[in-house]
């Protein structure tokens, strides 16, 4: 079939472009590293050897697991709190109007400030990082779910009423499917932000995890180690996006009209 053929061709083209981009970046990096001492900008080969010895250690995977566990916990608590709150604020116009400023305030406070508060309140513990991830992710999820409830089509609710559906049925059959797309994009954003701020939190208030190792490496001027950690993180986030989030989104929202189709 001709259509399938062009789709495969396009995918191949994208792959070639990505590989070329990677090669160009590596070349620039290599050239730049030649003119700088290794503690300022280590070359790709040096970073690779630092990375391979890093991966071989047990603590690498332990730190990895710890950081992701903290991000995940913060994210889960943010979802458990944010989704019902968003639904409640969406359902009651008065509550929504009353609490709107609180959200703006939370959104303007930087993650580093939350990290400092967390350090004061929780000290050097897992909860410091979890709290910072929570404070970053929760308002995002809450706001999107709240906005999502406003897009619920009154016509669909009326339709459900003509079929004499119960309130619970209207909630699960009309409200939830409407809120799912904004919730999903918020969750994606919140997870990404959460992963990033967790590092800030860990550099300040943890004695384990990727953020802590990054600071340790920086303190000891092991710049190649800093690079190795950073590249690992970048690779992991890209893999998560391509292998988990994107396929999941395509599956969940197959019903959406794509701009390219038809």
């Amino acid at each position: 079939m001709p259509i399938r053929h062009t789709a495969r061709e396009r995918r191949f083209r994208v792959l070639v472009l990505r590989v070329a981009l990677l090669a160009v970046l590596l070349a620039i990096w290599q050239i730049a590293s030649l003119g700088a001492p290794a503690f300022v900008l280590p070359g790709p080969a040096r970073v690779y050897s630092a990375w391979s010895s890093l991966v071989a250690t047990d603590s690498f995977w332990t730190d990895f697991g710890i950081t992701f566990w903290r991000v995940f916990m913060g994210f889960v608590i943010a979802t458990v709190v944010g989704v019902p709150l968003g639904l409640v604020l969406g359902a009651s116009e008065k509550l929504g109007e009353f609490f709107e400023p609180v959200l703006s305030v939370i959104n303007t406070v930087s993650s580093s400030i939350w990290a400092i508060f967390a350090l004061i309140w929780f000290g050097l513990s897992d909860w410091t990082t979890i709290f910072v991830v929570f404070m970053t992710a929760m308002p995002l999820i809450l706001t999107n779910v709240w906005q999502g409830t406003r897009t619920v089509n009154a016509d669909f609710v009326e339709l459900a009423q003509t079929f004499r559906m119960s309130r619970a049925q209207v909630l699960t059959k009309i409200y939830l499917p409407t809120i799912l797309p904004p919730f999903f994009s918020a969750a994606r954003l919140a997870f990404g932000f959460g992963a990033r701020v967790s590092l800030v939190a860990e550099t300040l208030g943890a004695s384990s995890g990727i953020g802590y190792r990054l600071r340790q490496a920086a303190d000891l001027v092991q710049t190649d180690q800093v690079f190795a950690w950073t590249l690992t993180l970048v690779a992991l986030m890209i893999a998560l996006e391509a292998l988990v989030l994107k396929p999941l989104e395509q599956r969940l929202f197959a019903w959406k009209k794509r701009p390219g189709a038809q």
Partner: peptide, 30 residues
Amino acid sequence: DWGSMTYMFQEDRLLPWRTAARNVAFGLEA
């Protein structure tokens, strides 16, 4: 016996996230 009565709107009001079959099934779910 409200189930013996049905209502058709001016617009089709099909739920965009459901296939044709699942939209039809909507009538039976209540």
